[in-house]
Design a protein around this nucleic acid. Sequence first.
DNA 1: TTACTAACCTATTCACTCA
DNA 2: TGAGTGAATAGGTTAGTAA
Length: 649
Amino acid sequence: MDEHALLTRLESDQSTMDPRAPSSPSEPSTPPAPSPDAACDGLLNSPDSSNPAPSGSQSSLEPSQDPSALAVDEERHPKGKRKRTAAKDKAVLETAYNANPKPDKAARLDIVKRVSLNEKEVQIWFQNRRQNDRRKSRPLSPQEIAALRYGGMHVVAHLIPSDPLHDSSFSSDNSSLSLGVPDMSRPQFPPPSPPHCDLATSNSSDEAEKVQETPQEARSWEARGSVSNGESAAPVSAEREPRQLLSRSFSGSIGYLANRWNTASSFSTPPLSRDDSFRLDDLTSSCPATIPSGSILPPPSSQPSRFRLSMSLEGKAEVVPSIPSPPRRSVAPPTPETLYGLGPTRRPELQRSYSTPTITLPPISMITSSLPQTNSQPLPPRLTRGRSRDVHAWEFCCDAENREDALTAQAKHESRGSAIAAISLLRSTSATGGSPLQQSSGAKRTATMSKAAPRNEMAKRAKLSRTTSSVARMQTTLGPSDKHNIQRDFNKLSAKPKASPLVSLSGHDSDKENWSPDEDGNPRPSFRHAPRTNGTSWGRRPLPSGPSKIDKKQPRRTPARVLLEGRNPAFLSNRANTAPTGGFRRGKRAQSPLDIYEDAENNNSPASRRPAALDDEVERFMRGQVSPSKKGDVDAVAGLLSLSQGNWR
DNA sequence: TTACTAACCTATTCACTCA
DNA sequence: TGAGTGAATAGGTTAGTAA
């Protein structure tokens, strides 16, 4: 420490002799010598300095220190010491970050002028800052999700091994179970001590605070990711404490839920009859106002939890009675309609098992299918968050094992997935001439797929072309020529022997985000039946209607990015190009119902409302060419997709 | 079509700080 | 001394542009 301090001082002294190397053209504006910040760095690194930093703060640097005694030493530490960002600079950076987490070059240069950092450093700072933010808003762990979903009930989730794929699938469960809450970082998780603590009573203010984080902080995850945050604490926890039981409680209203819910929608959405419920505020934002009480699920119950959500080692979400298990209030498993009056039951004949011992959660499709349709036009599955964040949905959609349970019958039925998407897939694969499964990694996959999607073809179209992929065209207004094209494409695809089941949702979409299945496990092609009022489609993030929206200052920036940044930079933090559309779906479309891709044979499904001829073709196609023989590949793809989403842990 | 560039991402390393 | 934090690096992807 002392040694470091001495070195630091030495370096600082020496640096006074050296002109500050301008790392940026804009740097000249930064005076080399009197940079108190840099000077402070030197002292910062010296614990034995006369001005010891206040505890717990590296930003303890005191600008009051004599700048003349310290110098800017930007050139140090190729391998050696690292300077800490001065408090002053940090404040400036934070302010700038709050204003815009992703400053463009001009903004960066402006920031550079205000801090003693060069552009590169500023860029890195923002990068790290975003990463840090993302970490904090990483996806929920299974127990968190379960707790969220079941409000005040006891939640017990089995953590899963650290195997990436398993984790992914686990995360998928995770996602499928749920909802996300921003900033549920590791430290917030209590040790898995009391396996069955009463979650209902443990809502901490901190959690509430987290829940109410600004949209900027509530970015996903992505999928956040995201859900795709690289450093998912949940898996980490799983690694550290595999298979331990964790308990956690959450407050009911979670703004970050939508994404989880969406994923959840895959196949494990809990029955709506649960007394223990949670709110899906975000989800409701994308649902019609007709949904009772603005919530998909019943409000949280204040009653003691009678069930707990358990996740089997196979990744199945199960609702098991708490011990002791009080009698359930509802006798018969209510259907979504009965619960919310959302409409006719799609498959009244298929009833989920609600037996007490173990309840396998019904697919989200069952629930969402009952959501009202807007304008009588069938809409593809679309939830509030989307894109690549919910690969997990894919896993559930593709992984046969996840469906081989009590729900096998229906699950198999559902597993046929979107015929349209399958066709799209074949198109894409036919374009590539190979199966995406041959990709050894997500990166390669995306790369290949990128190539599979001829750029010029994309470029030749309007800027909106990405949202008007072949699938989109199929789903949008199907004019005579469209049908003709569909038929033609179908014929082509049928002739392709190497068709892969891997679904390219958007036909030409290359990035993995476009692969994102919908939250209910169905492929989410980047299309929407009808274009939005602003000209964008619904399959992806909102895109500007044309190149005119391209930021002149950042010609390289995609219009979408620019647009998104303008709207809500927070959503961009997960990944610039992968900002979920859902977060913005708050306007007119925010009230769109969740549509489900169903087989044509399902009369009530949106798919069934597609042109009959198309459905027939699709049906034949799906049954005869793709689905059965490619199952294994599909599973593999699911895993790759998961990995591509950053679910490495 | 390809190469280049810029921006972004995740994952990781490692110096630094603190309890 | 170990853990946490933050700066920095590495490797990757995407998208726009120019040749």
